[in-house]
Amino acid sequence: MTNLERHLPTPADLEVDLASLRGDCARMAPHWSVPDRIAARPVSPSRIHGVSVPPASARLLDAMSEYGD
């Protein structure tokens, strides 16, 4: 029988302090952008009349309760 389990090396610095996390966020902040305007406005609930779900997705959602119960 083949053992398919693989053990990947873990990073040495699993314990990260808040200062290190804030520094990482500060370095990433210039890469984040905000859109100039909102692309779509929310739709009024009175205009929503139904949702169509493909049969394969419906079967998947139907089977999900078996795992959570």
Rank of each mutant, 00 (worst) to 15 (best):
H49C: 01
D36N: 08
S52Y: 10
T2S: 14
G50D: 02
M28Q: 06
S52P: 01
P11T: 04
L18C: 06
L60C: 01
L18W: 13
H49F: 05
D24E: 13
E15C: 03
M64W: 13
D24K: 08
V34W: 04
H7A: 09
L8N: 01
S65C: 03
S52E: 09
H7N: 13
A26H: 01
S44M: 07
R59L: 10
H49D: 02
V51E: 08
D13L: 04
V16A: 08
P30V: 00
A56Q: 15
M28A: 15
I48A: 07
E15G: 02
I38A: 09
V53R: 00
R47D: 13
G50R: 06
P30L: 02
H31A: 02
R22C: 06
W32E: 03
A56L: 14
S33D: 11
E66P: 00
P54C: 07
A26K: 12
A63T: 12
I48H: 09
I38Y: 03
A39D: 08
D62F: 11
S44Q: 04
H49Y: 05
V51G: 02
A39H: 14
R47T: 10
D62K: 03
L21Q: 12
A12R: 15
R47W: 06
D69I: 05
L21E: 11
C25W: 12
A12I: 15
E15V: 07
D17E: 07
S65V: 07
A12E: 15
M64Y: 05
V16Y: 00
V34K: 05
V53M: 06
S57C: 07
A56W: 14
L60G: 00
W32A: 01
T2K: 12
M28L: 15
S52A: 15
E5Q: 12
D69G: 11
E15Q: 05
S57D: 13
R59V: 01
D69Y: 11
S44K: 01
V51T: 10
H7Y: 12
L61K: 03
M64V: 11
E5F: 06
D24S: 13
T10I: 10
S33Y: 09
S52H: 12
D36C: 00
S52G: 06
D36H: 11
L4E: 13
E15R: 12
